[in-house]
Structures are given as C-alpha cells and as structure tokens.
Design a protein around this nucleic acid. Structure first.
Lengths: 229, 229
DNA sequence: AAAAATAAATAAACGCCGTATATTTACAGC
DNA sequence: GCTGTAAATATACGGCGTTTATTTATTTTT
C-alpha cells in the first residue's frame, strides 16, 4: 500500500495520537500502551508516529503534561469556587478536589504519580511547568494563611541550602510564595497522595476503613494540625 | 547443544533464578527485568525457567513475597528491640525502621508498593500472609496502646460491614487485634508511605524539605495525634 | 542390569514490542 | 510544470513472553 491522500487522514495527527493513547489507556491500562496499538487504531503504520513524537517516552511525557494540566485546572477551579477570605474552606475544597480528580481519572493519576510505563522516567524540566502549577493552588492557600499568621508550622524543618536553587526554579512556574508554604504543601501532598494512591491501587479497602471515611478523617487532621484557631 | 549434566548446573535453580532476578533489578531496575535476561545470566535458555515458575508474573510474586518477608523481619525486629512497656518508643522504632528499610532496599520497596512491572498486579491471596505479617508489628503496638487506653482514635471512622470479612482473613495472618487498631495502622501506613514513596521516586527533595527532616516531623505529628498524654 | 517412565533441559517458532533505515509519494512554492 | 520537502510506507533488527515439540539426563520399576 502507498501513502494515502492527506484529505483522507486525520486533520491533526499529533492530537489524534494523544487522544487514541488516552482511549487505549482508559480501556486497557497504561502498561498496555504501545505505539503499534495506537497506530493500528488510527490505521497508520507505527513509524509514522515518529513524525510527531521522537519516541515512545516523548509521547508519554506529552500525556503526562496534559494530565497535569487537567489536574491543575481542577485544583485551581476548586480553590476559586470558594471566597478568598475563607481560607479553611479553600483548603478543604482543594483537598476534596484532589481525591475526586484522582477517582475520576485513575489512569491519569497513576500515569502522573505512579510508574506504570516500564522504564519511563519523567524528564523534570519538561514536566515542571504544569506540575508546579498544579501544586500552586495548595501553596497559594497555605501562603495566604501564613501571611495572616494562621499557618501553624513554626517548628517545620528548614529547607537545606542545596535545594533553594530548585525552589527558585519552582517559583518561576508555581508563583512567588514563601518556601515554607511550599514545604508544608509538599507534606500535605504526600499525605493525601498516600491515601489516594493506596485506594486507587486497591490496597486500601480490603482491610481498613473505606477510602471516603479515611480521607475525610485525614483532611480534618490536616486542618487541625496546620491551621491556627 | 544438548542438555548438560545436572552436576554442572546450579544445585537449586529455583533459588538461583530469584537471586539473579534481584541482582538484575538492583543493577538495571525492576522495569528491565526479563526472563530472557535472567536466563542469559544463568547460561540457561529462557523456557527452562518455566519449569520453576509458570510465568513471569509468578516469579515477580515470589520476589514480592520475599521482599515482604524481609520488610516484615525488619519491622518486627525494630519493635522487639524496644521494651514492651515503652509503647511510644516501639512506635517510633517501627517508623524509623520503615524508612530505613525503604532507603536500603529501594528496588524492593518499589516492587512491593509501586507498580514497576508492566501489567503486573499482585495476587492478593498469595501475598497476603507476608503482607499482613509485615503490617502486624505496627498493628500490635497500636492495639497495645488501645488496651491501656492510650490510643487516641475515638473519632476514627468505622469500618463498613462489607469489609469485615476480609478483616477476619487478615487476622489469620496478622494476629488477633482489634479492627480499630488495624484501621489506624493503615492510615499511619499511608502517611509514611506517602513521604517515603515520593522520596524514593525522587519527587521530594527538589522542592521542599529533605526526606529526613520531613519524616522526623511527620513521625512526631503522628505520635502527637494518636497517642494520649 | 535392563527397560520404562519421568523430569528437565534445549530448539524452534509465534506474535508482540520499540525503533532505525531506506523508499515512495503527496503536497507546496517557485 | 518542476522541484524540494515533508510525511507516510515498507522492511528489517533485536528483544520480549510464551508455546510446542524434541531430546536427554535421571529416577523408578521390573
């Protein structure tokens, strides 16, 4: 067979490849993703994909960036749905949105925070902008609490000097907040991530409280620990 | 080439396969594990492995069980190194041992708690005994605290009925403790897991406090939240 | 001791995969 | 209308898990 006319093809193949990849991931799981499978779906030969992505990992990176953007949109929307003077409400809204997004898009969640692709490691520099933005919603609320002296983190461990340059880099994409707010955000992120990742992987429900109850309890504990009054 | 004499072979190939697998994982990472690579290392043909493991996933399961056993040994040893009347000390020792084991054996940690093998999902029934035992150290300390009315978890969400049968199954391998103790243990597990998994994946240091400081802070917070007085 | 049965290895092959190379062809600009 | 480029195909390579058939070492039975 020869190359078909462009008018018979997908108008923008780059986007079609990503869409097909997401469909495949949703249906067969991230580990089953393969360029050849995408090509089959699109009735294209596999090497044709290399005109749009230099290799499989580059495609995965593009998918991750898209997922981060979707996740960040959800985080920011949740924050902005609560009035800016209700900081506790904003913190809770962000926390709820976190789990909701993860349960709605478990494959995307695992693509970002897990390591479902064999041998793939996300290139930090490419992913950083969308990743930093997704965390910035939480950081912004914590920083606002800090500004009004309501952030209870006086005894929080200091950031080592060698990490301060990378913090400056984070600021470029995440916003100009205090490094303490970012540090606390990372810890809170680790806590919600701990529960949600176990829940999504199916390791939570069999032998403990259900995910919803546990998550609510954990969010209350976070509020009590980090917000004064 | 024909089949070589057994005297020239490894005496117990089953164990040799697992050892070679661990060496390969340590050197090339879990995602790069392959039966053919193991066979090459052992100067064996790949199908020969099928005499000892029905397929690749079965080998991975065996590796996971070994890792859980090593992890559980470390947890139990840490607990028993502190006198039984010093429950807070035991809790802290278990927490420290958790991170130490994870940092000492990052590949084993990711093999257990991550999803580094494409398409592999651990069969619960096979892994449960060693997994339940590894968590039992923490559960036993929490239950001892509960017995002396020092466990601060009165408001902990209850376990839904549909999970109680699987709790009974857990008891078979993890020991006869109250379900509240197990529930709290799962939450604490999620919290330390959240930090350690981020640290091992390299997502923690660049933009926040170092793992050691953060972990110490988190352990103190856990103690304060769950232990009375 | 010889023969039969069993177990454990090899050899070969199938259908996947990512990817590199060379080739063809549709399309755009002159 | 010709030419250069970009985008597709065709082909191929090596690696993977796994299956099948076959060979052979070892064990068991007679």
């Amino acid at each position: 067979m020869v190359r078909p006319k462009r008018t018979k093809q997908h108008p923008n193949l780059q986007e079609a490849i990503k869409e097909t990849a997401w469909e495949w991931i949703a249906q067969h799981g991230a580990p089953a993703l393969s360029l050849r499978a995408i090509a089959r779906e699109l009735k294209i030969t596999a090497p044709a994909i290399y005109n749009y992505f230099p290799n499989r990992d580059a495609l995965v990176t593009a998918l991750i960036i898209d997922a981060y953007t979707s996740f960040g949109d959800s985080q920011i929307a949740a924050r902005d749905a609560v009035p800016a003077d209700n900081l506790t409400g904003r913190l809770m809204a962000i926390g709820l949105a976190y789990r909701n997004w993860a349960l709605t898009h478990p494959q995307r969640y695992q693509l970002i925070f897990g390591t479902p692709i064999p041998g793939y490691e996300a290139p930090l520099m490419e992913v950083l902008p969308s990743a930093a933005r997704s965390l910035s919603a939480l950081v912004s609320v914590l920083d606002a609490l800090r500004v009004v002296s309501k952030l209870n983190a006086e005894e929080f461990p200091a950031v080592k000097k060698e990490f301060k340059t990378s913090f400056e880099m984070w600021k470029t994409y995440g916003g100009n907040y205090d490094i303490l707010s970012l540090s606390v955000a990372v810890l809170i992120w680790a806590r919600v991530h701990g529960i949600v990742s176990l829940e999504i992987a199916g390791n939570l429900p069999p032998f403990g409280t259900d995910g919803n109850g546990l998550y609510t309890y954990e969010m209350a504990a976070i509020e009590k620990q980090f917000i004064k009054e």
